[in-house]
Amino acid sequence: MRYLLRRIGGALLVLVLAFTAAYVLLAALPGDAVLARYGNPDLGLTADQLAEIRAAYGADRSAIVQYLDTAVSFLRGDLGYSVQSGAAVSALLAEALPSTLTLAALGLLVALVLAVLIAFTATHGSLRGGRPTAWLRSALRGLPPLMVSLPVFWIGIMLIQVFSFQLGLVPVLNAGPVQSLILPVATLAIPIAAPLAQVLIRSIDEVSAQPFVAVARSRGASAWWLLWRTVARNALLPALTMAGLLFGELVGGAVVTEAVFGRMGVGQLTAQAVAARDTPVLMAVVVLSTVVFVLVNLIVDLLYPVLDARLRRTDATGPARTGATSSAPVAPASPEPAERSEVTAR
């Protein structure tokens, strides 16, 4: 329970800090949105009129008051209005979100499937030792480092070039809703799948070398049994951490992907807002992605104790553990409880 509260508290703190940092950074930019939109001499507005507009937007108050005001209205769910178009930011987001969510969710899904597929095949027991499969194994193991080093925009451009223009498989213009998703999803999935696969391969290798895997084999387990029942759950933890962190990649990747493929979405919205210095929209996008990022990582944190009993730090553990831990360095593979039981066992 305390673990839960601590994690949630930590997540809230990150949110507040991220909001503040974003606000300070945007406020520090030279000029403001009022100037960017109404400062154009063609509009012929006088300095007085500009000041009036400022007052109407509340932009003439002190920085602290503005900050608090923004914070309070964000808490109430009021994201303000776009300086550029005057539309409610929440409406703009609601319009852009579904398309981006589809892209991101599909991208993540494809990335997961790809990573698991590569990792499981590259480490599968039946590929070990056999000469004919050795090359396949090393090829698969070499794939993730290659994929990791490719930038998103380059993958996007290459995919369009090859599949649309040269092979003509997927139309770029007038594509159906499904067709228009294929290339963007692939572009987004590849750089996310790569580090995931790398971490998975590594942790599967590590877990497979553990004595308890050999013991499971000695009970008659098949290669599939070992992979699913014994190795997978142990190897999942590091990959889970990685997946949480990669969510940031997903957000950044969506901006670039939408720009490259000319899709409407939060990414496109962000790009336009940056160009127009549309602070309320930028603020909303930053806060939205922070909330999602923090939430995803909170879920990951809360999943650890579910997946690994050793991380369930209940108050039931005896005081002996602390003693044993501080007196002897503890092997990473078997956390301190092992020491504890040694002590209390006697």
Partner: peptide, 17 residues
């Protein structure tokens, strides 16, 4: 054929009961 392994501390799957 049954096996009793060498090192009991690492021969049981840590995430299963």
């Amino acid at each position: 054929i049954g096996l009793i392994p060498q090192d009991p501390t690492s021969s049981l799957d840590p995430v299963r009961t």
